[in-house]
Write a protein that binds this DNA or RNA. Structure first.
Length: 873
RNA sequence: GAGGGUAUAGCUCAGUUGGUUAGAGCGCUUGCUUGACAUGCAAGAGGUCGGUGGUUCGAGUCCACUUAUCCUCACCA
């Protein structure tokens, strides 16, 4: 009973059905079997606000390849999925939605707002998860987590308390980055720098003793109302005598001291710098050292506050203008020097970030960074590619304290309560009802929430049940591989490492597999503002998930960016179709009585050849997967399937299939074996089509997903047969080449004479030559004299084809002469090497032997050409 | 200012520890209705590996310098 398959592969017919069958079979579920070796990946949780983009598609393709491969190898594999609550992004989204309804979040109040947020999450939070399924992701959906779910929240509280008890979390007044649009603090790495036009305004601050003025330069005149000092370098001869004097801020009128501080660089600006501790991180430090007061002159939404005197109520922009104008009028503006500089902006809304002093919660980083550096240095966690450990060290070694409080409502609320009576702070794992210090019931919880990344930092263990001692935690932790883009090494990877070291005393994962970003066809980053993003779902719809996955895996080397182009997806789709048709051909030749695939008794030359090459493929694919060289692994598969299996083996097998009987049965055995084993190797990359074909082939088991991964088999090494096939293929190619050059149509069969030392090899190849090289009868001997024949020379044979009137003797002579010259040139190069004592002494034996053999081949070839030339005379 | 990436065929990219004639896909040229596939088959043209110098018997592959380009971090006097 021959099976009928469509002429073209249609992923739409297949993918959803196959995915459902996997879910139904519960194949993705990790059993947590202590008898088996675990292999664990935790997903980088996408934001609930997110839509699947090419970055996700790449990231999850790579993870799924690794997971599926290890699952087939027999590991107890867990790919743990989940989503991130994305405090700032989600809150912004809901605030926007509210604004469209004409209400603010304050109108709703905290409780009402959170209710809305949870509703939003219920409605949209699962969207991206469904999209991941379209891609074929084999996550254990039963274990799906959310950073704001009960378990993760418990972990967050535990960690906050642990760190607080150790003094590693503190609350303090520090200069922080303030986004006037989002109205929250953000951490240092949540800033993005953009070049903007600006200027240095040189202002004269007169001495209060009337002895002239000191000139300071500023790029932010609007901060002048917050000035509380002027700093000069202690060794600066120009200003040495002025230290300790006071100056009067023009227009504002306030008196401020001149202080000495090495922060002031003698060669920068005028050498004197105004100090605004409340609105500049460096000034803040200077202010602390010099004991200057901190004067905050701005509101939390980007306006000047009442401390700014006459400028109160102005926006920062208006204030800048007004101050410059006032200074000019007062004669205090010395000069304006235009410049460009990088201005920090909020990574979410791109509003200019205002540094300001504010009371916030911080994580003390120094003690946490040290062990985190150590584990990477010791190789307990490795970056692939290795160079990213430099990026990591560079950041970790210069890390500053992490501001973790956010003036947002959507997130983990800070577990700290303030006592209205004694003023002390109570930090607690449970919701506090009384002050831990005085017992008063008059306490109120901190209104702020934690940075989203505080909870994602705990992801590798919070998702496994920590702080409870669960079997999952015991079995799957530490996890094995983390797959992510280089763009979130700081945000996430680094924080997971130090959090795990601190809480678990163990690294969170042994390997960090870093990939680049997917760019558009022109090499630009895909972005909303450019509108150049490609929706992976549309690609899947048009070409299939397998084609997209193959595209993303092919030509992708660790850590490097790649360009997306539809042409590439088309090529991948064509490859899927190629396999489909190879399978279709094989199935057409089966009658349903065939046994499940087994290692065939290889008798024929071509069988041993394909089995030997397949066996090498198993080794290469496996080794490259182990090295995270997914791109190399898949391109080996591509070449094997297309160029070797389809273009040669299937063509050769047709001969015996047509013969029928025992010969055909043998060929079928090999076809079925090689195809189904190759499908297994390909399955991690192209899960849908491989499953679909595998199911129609004779097979054992329910799914290719759980079939055993092929292993290298010494019994399948047939070096001699490989060599013989090479000799034959070389001759076939040479004949085709000559015929094509002479424009002989394939329909015109020709008698072929082969003079060779490899008579046995060529005698088995007669049928091959007839089928693949348009040969009619084939004669094999030591030498032939065929007047008027075209001669084709390889290293192992001289082939003569009588072509009668088609032969141009003069052209033949020229061609052979040219070929001879080429061979001689090469030979002389090799001879030079072989006569070089240095080469003979130092090169490895294999290389030298290689060259010797090459020399021999070339000499034979030249001899063959000379004989052919002589025959032409 | 500090660190890093990339530079290989017209285009997009591979090239694993230095070792024969540097590969693939797309594009291009020529020829094929070869009963699996025109989303295909066969044949072909096209790079000396950004530049200079060095190490080595031998370098696309290692080192130094240099040019171009991109990125990250830092810096709003």
């Amino acid at each position: 009973m021959a099976k009928e398959l469509a002429k073209q592969y249609d992923p739409k017919d297949v993918e959803d059905r196959i995915y459902q069958s996997w879910l139904k079979g519960n194949y993705f579920h990790a059993a947590c079997d202590p008898q088996k070796t675990p292999y664990t990946i935790v997903i980088p949780p996408p934001n609930i606000t997110g839509q699947l983009h090419m970055g996700h598609a790449l990231d999850n393709t790579l993870q799924d390849v690794l997971i599926r491969w290890r699952r087939m190898q027999g590991y107890d594999t867990l790919w743990l999925p989940g989503t991130d609550h994305a405090s700032i992004a989600t809150e912004a989204k809901i605030v926007d939605a509210l604004r469209a309804e004409g209400i603010s979040k304050e109108d709703l109040g905290r409780e009402g707002f959170l209710k809305r947020a949870w509703e939003w999450r219920a409605q949209y939070g699962g969207r991206i998860v469904e999209q991941l399924k379209k891609l074929g992701s084999s996550c254990d959906w039963e274990r799906e987590r959310f950073t704001l779910d009960e378990g993760c929240s418990k972990a967050v509280r535990e960690v906050f308390n642990n760190l607080y008890e150790k003094g590693l979390i503190y609350r303090g007044e520090r200069i922080i980055n303030w986004c006037p649009h989002c109205k929250t603090s953000i951490s240092d790495i949540e800033m993005e720098y953009e070049e903007k036009d600006g200027a240095f305004w040189h202002m004269a601050y007169p001495f209060t003793d009337g002895s002239g003025a000191i000139i300071v330069a500023t790029t932010r005149p609007e901060t002048i109302p917050g000035d509380t000092g002027v700093a000069v370098h202690p060794d600066d001869e120009r200003y040495k005598d002025m230290i300790g004097k006071t100056v009067r801020i023009p227009v504002i009128g306030r008196e401020i001291p001149i202080v000495a501080d090495t922060y002031a660089k003698m060669d920068k600006g005028t050498g004197a710098v105004k100090i605004t501790p409340a609105h500049d991180p460096n000034d803040f430090e200077v202010g602390l050292r010099a004991g200057l007061p901190i004067l905050n002159v701005m509101t939390d939404d980007g306006y000047m506050n009442d401390k700014a005197g006459k400028y109160a109520g102005m926006s920062l922009k208006e204030c800048r203008k007004a101050i410059v104008a006032d200074f000019e009028e007062a004669g205090a503006l010395v000069k304006i020097e235009p410049t460009k500089h990088e201005v920090g902006t909020c990574y979410r809304c791109h509003t200019s970030v205002e540094p300001r002093v504010s009371k916030q919660w911080f994580v003390k980083m120094q003690p946490l960074a040290e062990p985190a550096i150590k584990v990477v240095r010791e190789g307990k966690t490795k970056f692939i590619p290795e160079r990213f450990d430099k990026t990591y060290f560079n950041w970790m070694e210069n890390i500053r304290d992490w501001c973790i409080s956010r003036q947002l409502w959507w997130g983990h609320r800070i577990p700290a309560w303030y006592c209205d009576d004694c003023g002390e702070i109570t930090v607690s794992r449970e919701d506090a009802t009384v002050c831990a210090h005085c017992g008063s019931a008059h306490i109120h919880q901190d209104p702020d929430t934690l940075d989203t990344w505080f909870s994602s930092a705990l992801w590798p263990f919070s998702t496994l049940g920590w702080p409870d001692k669960t079997p999952e935690l015991a079995h799957y932790y530490p996890t094995d591989t983390l797959v992510t883009g280089y763009d979130i090494i700081f945000f996430w990877v680094a924080r997971m490492i130090f959090s795990a070291c601190e809480q678990m005393g163990e690294v969170p994962f042994s390997t960090v597999f870093i990939h680049g970003i997917v760019r558009d066809e022109l090499g630009r980053k895909m972005s909303k503002s450019l509108g150049n993003g490609i929706d992976p779902l549309l690609v899947i719809d048009k070409y299939g998930a397998d084609a997209l996955r193959l595209t993303l895996a092919t030509g992708n080397s660790p850590g490097n960016d790649m360009r997306y182009s539809e042409k590439k997806v088309e090529a991948s789709r064509n490859f899927a179709n190629k396999i489909w048709n190879a399978a279709r051909f094989i199935l057409m030749n089966l009658d349903g009585s065939e046994a499940a695939p087994h290692v065939p008794e290889a008798a024929a030359l071509e069988d041993k050849w394909i089995l030997s090459l397949f066996n090498k493929l198993v080794k290469e694919v496996t080794e490259n997967l182990e090295k995270f060289e997914l791109g190399i692994a898949v391109s080996k598969l591509y070449d094997f399937i297309w160029d070797i299996f389809c273009d040669w083996y299937i063509e050769l097998a047709k001969i015996r299939l047509q013969q029928g009987g025992e010969a055909a049965a043998q060929a079928k055995d090999v076809l079925i074996y090689v195809l189904s084993e190759t499908l297994k190797l390909l399955h991690p990359f192209m899960p849908f089509i491989t499953e679909e074909i595998w199911q129609t082939l004779p097979h054992e088991g329910d799914t290719i997903m759980l079939s055993p991964w092929p292993v290298y088999n010494e019994a399948l090494c047939f070096d001699e047969d490989e060599k013989h096939m090479d000799i034959i293929m070389e001759a076939i190619r040479a004949i085709r080449n000559r015929r094509a050059e002479m424009n002989v149509p394939p329909s015109r069969k020709a008698h072929v004479y082969i003079a060779t030392e490899y008579k046995d090899v060529f005698s088995t190849a007669v049928v091959f030559l007839q089928r693949l090289a348009s040969a009619a009868d084939v004669e094999i001997g030591d030498s032939f004299e065929i007047p008027g024949a075209v001669s084709i020379v390889t290293a192992h044979a001289k082939v003569y084809i009588p072509m009668g009137d088609l032969v141009d003797f003069e052209a033949e002579r020229k061609r052979l002469t040219k070929e001879k010259e080429g061979a001689e040139k090469k030979l002389s190069g090799i001879c030079a090497k072989l006569s070089n004592p240095g080469f003979l002494a130092k090169a490895p034996e294999a290389v030298v032997n290689n060259q010797r053999e090459e020399e021999k081949k070339l000499r034979e070839k030249i001899k063959n050409i000379e004989e052919s030339l002589a025959a032409l005379q």
